[in-house]
């Protein structure tokens, strides 16, 4: 609770400072809104031209893409600017200044920068997801809504864990952003589409090696009533648990890396 109160104070201060440059603040938010609006428009163009992608209509695709983007945005608000870009904090020497303060390192980094630019993504995703839920063929039940909430939680934890692990690699590599671009951004592009259209080995990699499909694909199968195998059902239903485990693993990796860190200066 104490941390939440401190975080609240930081966010308040952040917005006060940011509001001094209102035009920059709102143009940044709008740019992110527009960027993902264009992505949804691209998906719409493809599904309009081909009817559906392996049985996934525009509304289904919106749910699939939306779950990925929504969870990414929430994790991004907390971790993207600082923890995910830990290499910048290390090479600039800023990390040393965190270490002499009494609060935990990850908590400090969360407080340091509120990811305001992700708000535009959250807004555009909510608009499209709510509209998709209203239009999908399958009737959403109370279970679907409860499950959706847990799936979002699991997704946020996996995305946050990914940002922490990939940022932590800087403790070993000094510069991890290029590796993160491939492992996180490029590989996650696969889960913008139904995994059923890709070869089996990609499905295995994105499920058991990099858990990106558990963020949105398996939960979407359950929400949209598209589950066909027991494996899909189990992976979907366990996504919040996998999220918790992955997040704990990421904190473990972060702390191992921190133990190895010996400062950037002379």
């Amino acid at each position: 609770m104490e941390f939440l109160s401190i975080y609240g104070s930081y966010v308040k201060m952040f917005f006060k400072a940011r509001m001094e440059y209102r035009f920059s603040f709102f143009s940044g938010m709008f740019a992110n809104f527009y960027c993902y609006f264009i992505t949804y428009a691209t998906i719409w163009v493809i599904t309009r031209q081909f009817g559906a992608i392996d049985g996934w209509k525009f509304e289904d695709m919106t749910m699939l893409y939306g779950l990925n983007l929504f969870t990414y945005s929430i994790a991004g608000v907390l971790f993207w600017y600082t923890v995910f870009h830990l290499d910048e904090e290390i090479t600039s020497g800023n990390l040393d200044s965190y270490l002499i303060r009494p609060m935990g390192l990850v908590k400090q980094m969360i407080c340091r920068r509120f990811g305001d630019t992700f708000l535009g993504q959250i807004v555009v995703t909510l608009i499209f997801m709510v509209s998709a839920i209203a239009k999908i063929d399958y009737q959403m039940t109370a279970f679907s809504y409860v499950y959706l909430a847990f799936a979002v939680l699991g997704g946020v934890l996996i995305q946050s864990g990914a940002m922490i692990i990939l940022g932590s690699l800087s403790f070993w590599l000094l510069r991890s952003s290029d590796l993160a671009d491939i492992v996180y951004y490029d590989m996650r592009t696969f889960v913008h589409y139904p995994l059923s259209i890709f070869p089996a080995f990609i499905r295995i990699v994105l499920t058991y090696v990099l858990p990106w499909a558990i963020i949105n694909y398996y939960p979407s199968l359950i929400i949209l009533n598209k589950v066909q195998t027991t494996e899909e059902f189990v992976l979907g239903i366990l996504s919040p648990v996998i999220g918790i485990l992955f997040f704990l693993l990421s904190l473990f990796v972060f702390n191992r890396g921190l133990r190895r860190y010996s400062g950037s200066g002379s």
Binding site: S24, S27, V45
Partner: peptide, 17 residues
């Protein structure tokens, strides 16, 4: 504009589509 990245992104995304 002072900060130009939002506008660069607008152009990038328009070009993308």
């Amino acid at each position: 504009l002072i900060e130009i990245w939002p506008f660069r992104r607008l152009i990038d995304d328009t070009i993308r589509l």
